[in-house]
Amino acid sequence: MSGRVIVITSGKGGVGKTTTSANIGTALAKAGNKVVLIDTDIGLRNLDLLLGLENRIVYTIVDVVEERCKLKQALVKDKKNPNLSLLAAAQTRDKSAVTQEQLKEICETLKKDNDFILVDCPAGIEQGFQNAIAGASEAIVVTTPEMSAIRDADRIIGLLSAREEIESYKLLLNRVRPNLIATNDMMSVEDVVELLACDLIGIIPEDTGIISSTNKGDPIVNDEKSLAGQAYRNVARRIMGEEVEFLNLEEDKNFFGKIKNFFEKTIKDIKAKI
């Protein structure tokens, strides 16, 4: 088995890299893949919190690198899904504790018996970023439809495209707010894609459920009713090579449009049942 190493990066902080890593990782594992999540944000680790694994971490990536434990010992299994495990970052050290070569080596080792290795990248374009992308051959660039996030994403895309090892990079547009797009207060998905000239892998709507899911330590993909959860599950399916249509987040603005949508939906449902 030779797994795929995908780095999840963004440039700007706070756009949802870690949330995305946790959710895509969980969704891929739920679909039957063996997945390892690596948190490379040494000193500011958070992926353990989002997965609800903060109390189970004994060894970190720094312990592996400094040979205080074996790689297998440092992998923490997810509570719900035995297919998913986490290699946590150390909280008390900094980015220089791990080198690019060491990370590459870890990825190579994990490739052998996993389908996917997702690397959660720290914000910025300095050493932490360089480390995180060292072992990856694919990248997902997370951004939101905001000025600074898009600008930073463009820098990241520039750096990724200059790197031969990265075979493909795709854009994940997070925290999309259809009501703001409808009133022309926010850039649309098409605008962002045009500006960044990068293929899309997912559109995630803003969802207040993310806050409670983070608070519970349970990724939102586990919530079957959530729209953001659905969007993340779709991203996972696209990563696995399926063709999945993007969710239609744009609501028709006027009254008649709403009625039309309602009827269209009902007819679709009835047709599906027949």
Binding site: D154, I181, M186, M187, D191
Partner: peptide, 27 residues
């Protein structure tokens, strides 16, 4: 019943788009 009128050219979105276009090109 008429859909809300949204001005296309001077909308916040359009401002953001053109500002970004310029800044990305400069970057």
């Amino acid at each position: 019943f008429k859909p809300q009128e949204v001005s296309e050219d001077n909308s916040v979105k359009e401002v953001a788009r053109s500002r970004l276009k310029l800044v990305l090109m400069q970057d």
